[in-house]
Design a protein around this nucleic acid. Structure first.
Length: 215
DNA sequence: GTGATCCTCGGGTAGTAGTG
DNA sequence: CACTACTACCCGAGGATCAC
């Protein structure tokens, strides 16, 4: 995979957001100067500026993320086209607290029907992606209140992916996908109010991978 | 806490001199 | 001419400081 400048920085921002940190907070946590990831540092009068491998290594170490997961974040941004265009694209949007409403998704799992708001994001590649505004603090510190998630029903969920899901009539929860068998899924807690659990495929109303997060 | 500006450090490289 | 060693300069990354 080739890495584009903006994708790498976007992935860094996403990693920070997933840890409940600002870019400067992430830099601080990594033992770097708080301004190391300032937006003003990402370009120079002569061109683009990249984080050093040393800085990236420190960030991965500080966040516990693997190089593989980071490149996946870069790839996730690429898949959506995030950071590659300033042309706005409209995406369906709902507050997290409204996601437990019935009838939001069609049989294919894509957003449909009334009730969706709209937001503008940089040109997504997945026409069925949607955005979620985090309107509570219950996902902190992983996802900050006021932040935005972008989810894709079309992207396959693999172990280690962060997901939103709905079981039965319950509220929507955020989890980390764990192992799966032919008939069951396991999920690790990511939401402070929830415990990890295993369940069968049938009990999941929907399961969507979080492919981007922003504060 | 964040962004802007300036400064320092270090790596890379082009140019030049020395040697065979 | 070819190769090596040395020097000077350029430039990017990150730190220091300040303003807000």
């Amino acid at each position: 995979m080739s890495m584009k400048h903006e994708d790498v920085w976007r992935a860094l921002d996403t990693l920070a957001a997933e840890k409940g940190l600002s870019p400067s907070g992430l830099a601080r946590a990594a033992g770097l100067d708080p301004t190391a990831f300032n937006r003003s540092k990402r370009t120079t009068s002569r061109g683009l500026r990249w984080p050093s491998t040393e800085s990236l290594s420190r960030v991965l170490s500080a966040t516990g993320a693997s190089l593989e997961s980071f490149t996946a974040l870069v790839g996730g941004a690429r898949a959506l086209g995030l950071g590659r265009s300033h042309r706005a694209h409209r995406l369906p949007l709902l507050p997290l607290s409204q996601l437990c409403t019935d009838g939001l998704f069609d049989d294919a799992g894509n957003p449909s029907g009334q009730g969706w708001e709209e937001t503008e994001v940089p040109q997504p590649g997945d026409p069925h992606g949607y955005a979620v505004r985090i309107d509570s603090a219950r996902l902190e510190p992983v996802f900050r209140e006021g932040g935005t998630l972008i989810l894709s029903p079309a992207v396959p969920v693999r172990p280690g992916d962060r997901v939103l899901l709905r079981r039965g009539e319950g509220p929507v929860g955020a989890f980390v996908a764990g192992d799966r068998t032919a008939t069951s899924f396991s999920f690790d807690s990511l939401d402070a109010d929830s415990a990890g659990f295993s369940t069968t495929r049938e009990t999941l109303v929907w399961l969507h991978r979080i492919i981007w997060a922003s504060s």
